[in-house]
């Protein structure tokens, strides 16, 4: 799968990338205001397109669309609340509010899923490890060694199958025979891996492993730009949360759909901030493309 690499956004400190990659889906989960839902879905779609290309994104989104419908329908048929009756069946009334609420919930689910699809593109494994393993160098090393082990083991399995293939390809063998054979291969793999790990251990000792307290070669510094961006993220997050919980961004579906405290100005401002936050990877990239006389700055 194609993933866009070398974006200007990824030059930010990993902590900010984590704040963005987890903040976006969290905010999406907090509200079912149609406007905020629309913004978040649009942003999620655009960001995934930015990272993975339109084809991949469209395919994934279309694939998940039926779930939205299922959620909406389940809600329609199980939730009797709401004033606007669409149709009746027997004793039950099916309402427009209930259908809309279902669609909103389905969209929220879809949006969160789309956000999580971009998660690893935004925050690479290495940076994730850095964030959580920095204070635990032993854990970070362990993870790195495990990551090395996967392809190595796959290679060993292939070699074993290749080497012992002559005996197993015999179609005359019954299932019992074949099972026995597989067990043999697993035992080969275990022995071989253990044997090799002795050499790895020697190599570690030879390079002074355990001699002193370990340090780490990775480092990401918080620069002034990172701090400014952190402040922006924090303000955006608080503003959107305020709007969602504090008033203008609240939305009720039952008994009739309406905005709670319809302060249009406040809603517009928070929506713009929300857009600004979610589209950060894109506008940063565009800003880069404009090129920058901005790089040159007279000292104060």
């Amino acid at each position: 799968m194609y993933t866009r690499k070398h974006t200007i956004f990824e030059t930010l400190h990993p902590a900010l990338l984590l704040a963005y990659a987890s903040g976006a889906p969290i905010l999406a989960m907090l509200t079912n205001h149609p406007l905020f839902l629309a913004i978040s879905f649009l942003a999620a779609f655009c960001v995934q397109t930015f990272y993975s290309g339109i084809r991949e994104t469209a395919k994934n989104t279309l694939f998940m669309l039926p779930f939205v419908l299922v959620v909406a329908l389940i809600n329609l048929f199980t939730n009797q609340r709401g004033m606007t009756i669409l149709f009746r069946a027997g004793h039950y009334a099916y309402t427009c509010e209930s259908l809309c609420y279902g669609i909103a919930n389905g969209m929220m689910l879809l949006t969160v899923l789309v956000w999580f699809r971009s998660f690893s593109a935004i925050l690479s494994n290495e940076k994730f490890l850095y964030l959580f393993g920095r204070h635990l160098p032993a854990t970070a090393l362990l993870l790195s060694m495990i990551l090395k082990l996967f392809p190595e083991t796959r290679h060993k399995i292939q070699s074993i199958q290749f080497a012992q293939g002559g005996f197993s390809n015999n179609p005359k063998c019954g299932i019992k025979e074949r099972l026995k054979h597989s067990m043999r291969q697993i035992s080969s793999l275990l022995e071989w891996s253990m044997e090799d790990s002795i050499e790895t251990a020697d190599s570690m000792k030879a390079r002074a492993y355990g001699k002193a307290e370990r340090t780490s070669y990775r480092s990401y510094k918080m620069t002034a730009k990172d701090r400014r961006m952190a402040a922006f993220f924090a303000i955006a997050f608080l503003a959107v949360c305020y709007s969602i919980f504090g008033g203008s961004g609240r939305y009720t579906y039952f008994p009739v759909m309406r905005m709670d405290h319809g302060n249009i100005l406040e809603l517009t401002v928070s929506a713009v901030i929300y857009l600004g936050f979610l589209f950060t990877p894109l506008w940063m990239e565009l800003q880069l493309q404009k090129g920058g006389m901005r790089t040159w700055e007279s000292s104060k």
Binding site: R207, K211, A212, Y217
Partner: peptide
């Protein structure tokens, strides 16, 4: 193969230096 400890070239070069606490 067996004497390589970590998963990336960069980390492998740093491995011994990390061990001595540089």
């Amino acid at each position: 193969d067996n004497q390589i400890v970590t998963d990336t070239v960069r980390h492998e070069l740093a491995f011994g230096l990390e061990n001595i606490g540089m």
